[in-house]
Design a protein around this nucleic acid. Structure first.
Lengths: 138, 138
DNA sequence: GTAACTGCAAACACTTTGCGAAGCA
DNA sequence: TGCTTCGCAAAGTGTTTGCAGTTAC
């Protein structure tokens, strides 16, 4: 469940290139299953296992990042740089926020000596414009 | 997956009282399974389904809150008030942080008009003192 | 009395993994 | 050739749910 310390040699792979390409163009924070469906367009024989394996590999390589949500499956992001996200609690879509990344959160606050903080995750939760509009009319 | 709009009448229940009691004394952010084991001490016949059902009910009642982690099962918290948490990426323990809750994150920033922000989650990730010490010696 | 709640077990959603075959270096 | 990656299918993990019986009010 934690990363291992033995790192294998990474080979070129048609499937990983495809997935990396899909992620590079994609700002929609797709789920593994959505990426699976997108890759099947060009590579109909690709398997879910391969998609999951390659997504995890790309995360470890630092090319993409994995976003865990309080509901539903993980989403993936072609992170150019650290930033924060918004989750619509109704349609479960994920959006980028314009909030600036706060480096000061990565240093241990006063009473937390001994803790080594390596990063942080901030997620805004609420209703996207579309769902907020729909909800108004109920 | 989202909450419904029909709210049923809530009855008293031995099992829910037990779970609520366990949570009130507990500042360890236990997982559902840990709560299940704790409740079996006093109520050996309790079932996992009942524990999950009651935890979700207590969350909906606002008595506890559910913490989703980037790894492993959800944790539960007897939230006196909003606060933030730290996750050790090695032992997966969850700790309270002394950071102040930032209300300003609950208003839509500049370019997010139309979004209705209802709350936010902030999680620090890193190594707890114990795991940081262990890691040093490797 | 009736509707919420229970224990049980099966189902569910999402993800990982073991295997033998295929492909990259 | 040797080790990585593949597709497939089965297994794993965490959680929800249908059902028949029980309990609260």
């Amino acid at each position: 469940m934690t990363g291992g310390m033995i790192s294998l040699k990474i080979r070129n792979s048609q499937q990983r290139n495809l997935i990396a390409g899909i992620m590079k163009d994609n700002y929609d924070h797709p789920t593994a299953d959505e990426i699976y469906e997108l890759s099947r367009i060009k590579e109909p024989a690709i398997s879910r296992g391969t998609v999951y394996r390659n997504l995890n590999q790309l995360v470890e390589m630092g090319e993409i990042s994995k976003l865990t949500m309080p509901v539903g499956p993980d989403h993936f992001d072609c992170r150019e740089q650290n930033h924060y996200h918004f989750l619509c609690r109704k349609c479960h879509k994920v959006f980028d926020t314009p909030l600036e990344y706060d480096d000061s959160l990565n240093v241990a606050p006063g009473s937390m000596e001994g803790f080594r903080i390596e990063g942080h995750r901030l997620l805004l939760v609420g209703l996207c414009p579309q769902c907020a509009g729909i909800e108004k009319n109920n």
